[in-house]
Design a protein around this nucleic acid. Structure first.
Lengths: 319, 319
DNA sequence: CTGAAAGCGCTAACAT
DNA sequence: ATGTTAGCGCTTTCAG
């Protein structure tokens, strides 16, 4: 591993000059050339560890997501990566696997590795960000808030998305639109349910919405059970808004078991179905702009890294 | 950011002792306790950058995949992450986005960041691994080889998987099984086609297999076009082996356009279809053990990191 | 078992 | 514009 010193010797300059060349600081053009040649010859790449130790920061940002196998989060990751790239940063991804302690581990690593910043899709309600923030490493919460008033948050307009999906089902002529949303304690699930509630209340001011609402776990099996439960209720809905892609698949399975087609029972799905197959199944999908979400979160993060110290912001990504 | 020195002062010992405590080196139990307390009090976390600079290596391994939105690679990532975790390492993921220059960038970063090792799913034929290898950073190629006889390689048995998928279609009674495989220059695509060829030749010793084979790009649209092309040929197959999940979706779309059901035209898909929906569509799927592949690759990598200097190995993951 | 001290490779004052 | 030098925080000889 050649160092700056060897390059300096070969180029006949001081190490500082080599450093300057690699940091774009004004240097005599002649020397620039000689340094570049020497570096080329030695296959020199600046050691980032040393640089980082000296500078106390890196050019790497870290994205922590709860599930690397979920297309929503990988699309988000793409957005982060794209933005980081545009800004001259690299992005690395970590999978907290929906486990708060793994999340904590990766937060520690981000701290100990002196990452330039962190985009976090929180899996725990109160991730411990103190160390990171105290050290001055900016953190942006994406998709859901981190339960910390100090960190920036970038989210979707979950309420409105659900509201519109519900209304569109009514416009299509359905009469009683139910809802399958995510876990009770999850912010996005609450907001999506709230959006549905608003539309529902408008059409059925006297009805009890809870009879047409189910909480599930954002997974296929949960969606299936929830749909079963709705179908078996005394006064089943004739259409359902499902709060994410996986549960929609489960819902479709349940319908298939009951030999009900999406034409009879209307279905609106929040989030992309990864394969266009399903789009053809008659299910109305409302793609969530996951990539834009990631991009916006990273953009805000880069601003913070660049020194923006304004008050914490809450951004809503519209598309 | 408290340092080892502050902990040392608070604990009334030398920095070296603090270091030893954090590295599991024998230290007087009393001192261990005092150090731990002091560290706790100061919220001390050892600075990995400094450690890394000193030790010239880290406890982080890096996985570079060509597409973070492809479920095959994310499953592979999970395998890597699991294995790293078991071995006390952390894993970070990078997305080369199928672009050789991005791949190169991330390889440079892995070098400059002194990652402990790299699992690479190569996107270019000849990624430049010299620096990494010269420095002694082990690299394991996963899924396809890196065109470098010096690096370990962990792959699936693509030939056999395709062979078996083809045969199973014949067993089910189909008479002419065609094949849609990946890009001509891609190793996995070649091997899968070869597996199909072998079975095909057995049933049709005199036929020209190329009339029943299509190369596409491993994507939905490509699969669709390939299926169109097969359907419109003069003597279309009555069943098709499709070399990956995305192309299978495309193939199904084409069939839907022609109002052909998977019962009339048999379909075998290499790789999981992410949503069980499709499993119900009558398509026979041959799940690829992507997670096991990632796990095996990481396992081999950790062995190398631990000092195993045996000759380069080529592992075939069976399940 | 413990401490002192050197040094990993780089950057950023400070001088020149 | 360039060189000298002092660290960044840690680990690891080397003495004791």
């Amino acid at each position: 591993m050649p160092t700056i010193y060897e390059v300096a010797r070969l180029a006949g300059v001081s190490p500082a000059t080599v450093s300057r060349v690699f940091n774009g600081i004004t240097v005599n053009p002649d020397n620039v050339i000689r340094v570049r040649q020497a570096a080329e010859e030695l296959q020199f790449i600046p050691n980032r560890t040393a640089r980082r130790l000296r500078r106390q920061t890196s050019e790497v940002i870290c994205l922590i997501i709860p599930d690397i196998e979920n297309p929503f989060f990988t699309a988000l990751a793409r957005g982060v990566e794209d933005c980081a790239h545009e800004g001259g940063f690299s992005a690395v991804f970590c999978d907290s696997d929906d486990q708060p302690d793994k999340e904590q581990t990766y937060l520690k690593i981000a701290y100990a590795e002196q990452m330039a910043g962190v985009v976090l899709v929180p899996t725990s309600d109160q991730p411990d960000l103190n160390r990171l923030l105290k050290q001055g490493t900016p953190v942006v919460a994406a998709d859901r808030s981190a339960g910390n008033p100090l960190v920036d948050t970038v989210v979707l307009d979950n309420f409105k998305i659900a509201l519109m999906a519900t209304e569109s089902l009514y416009f299509r002529g359905f009469r009683r639109v139910g809802c399958i949303t995510g876990p009770r304690e999850t912010e996005t699930a609450q907001l999506r349910a709230a959006g549905w509630r608003q539309a529902f209340a408008q059409y059925h001011p006297k009805a009890d919405p809870d009879r047409f609402l189910r909480h599930a776990d954002y997974r296929v099996a949960g969606g299936r059970e929830a749909m079963e439960s709705l179908l078996e209720s005394s006064n089943p809905p004739d259409a359902v808004v499902v709060a994410n892609n996986s549960m929609t698949v489960g819902a479709l399975e349940a319908m298939q078991d009951h030999a009900i087609s999406p034409n009879e029972l209307g279905l609106a799905c929040l989030g992309d179905l990864p394969y266009s197959m399903l789009q053809r199944s008659g299910v109305q999908t409302y793609p969530l702009p996951a990539r834009a979400l990631g991009h916006a979160a990273a953009e805000l993060l880069l601003q913070r890294i660049a020194g923006d110290t304004g008050p914490p912001r809450r951004l809503v990504v519209r598309d």
